[in-house]
Amino acid sequence: MGESGSRSGELRLRPPVHRVHRTAVTWWRARILLAGAVVVAALVVAAVLLPGVVRPWLLVPAAGFAVVTVVTAVGMPAWWYRVHRWEVTGDAVYTRTGALWQEWRVAPMSRIQTVDSDRGPLEQLFGLATLTVTTASARGALRIPGLDHGVAADLVQELTETTQATPGDAT
């Protein structure tokens, strides 16, 4: 970061400054494992209750699904953690999200319409929050998942104050 002194190379986007909270990795893992566990449990319960002939047709997918879930839970959150970044300057909010598809998003302060922070049950457990910043575009929302709850609350406060100070209807 911050090597913008050299003007020789090609133009590119640097990652925004801040990472999401470290606990986000655990939260993502828990979410994947939980979702996977629900499906696997449903398949296993069905296999126990239903006659033996169909059992392999349920247990084999259950095993496959369990493997995929575990592999995803181990691999993806670490990748997401490396990619997910955010930054707020006086003029705009920047995010970078994704893994296979990486996406940088920019919303200028003057165009921001709403700033929300949401906390699902799992996020509450881990002390995290997801920040959503919307603009007048139906497709322009920025989401920063896995923020520390306190940081998210401060951000909502800060962004709301800044955007309220900006005149115009943000379209």
């Binding site: 913008s4 090609e10 133009l11 590119r12 986007l13 920047y94 200028p108």
Partner: peptide, 11 residues
């Protein structure tokens, strides 16, 4: 102009 501003850098 300025929107991507601080995020742009030269490799």
């Amino acid at each position: 102009p300025g929107l991507l501003g601080p995020l742009l850098e030269h490799a």
